[in-house]
Amino acid sequence: MKQILLFLFWLLLAVVAIALTIVLGERGAWYFAWVLGTVMIVLIAAAGTAIIDARYDESHDDHY
């Protein structure tokens, strides 16, 4: 039961996201660009920083 509810929740979220994308893409292209851009900036910055620790584990290099 819990699984089904969880699935329905994510399904609903996906539908909302798609609807939002269609509406924003149509009428608010810049708003849409902001949503995408912000997500991209956050993810790239997070990934690019987490690399420090991946490298650090290997080499114990304390350069910065």
């Binding site: 851009g37 997070a46 920083t49």
Partner: peptide, 29 residues
């Protein structure tokens, strides 16, 4: 605070560089 600072530096630099490109292109728009 080198460990903290170098990570903060990295995350801010990446975060900022994309944002600065965005600001300029949106400024034009």
């Amino acid at each position: 605070h080198i460990e903290l600072a170098k990570r903060s530096f990295r995350v801010a630099a990446l975060f900022g560089v994309f944002a600065s490109i965005g600001v300029i292109s949106l400024g034009d728009a």
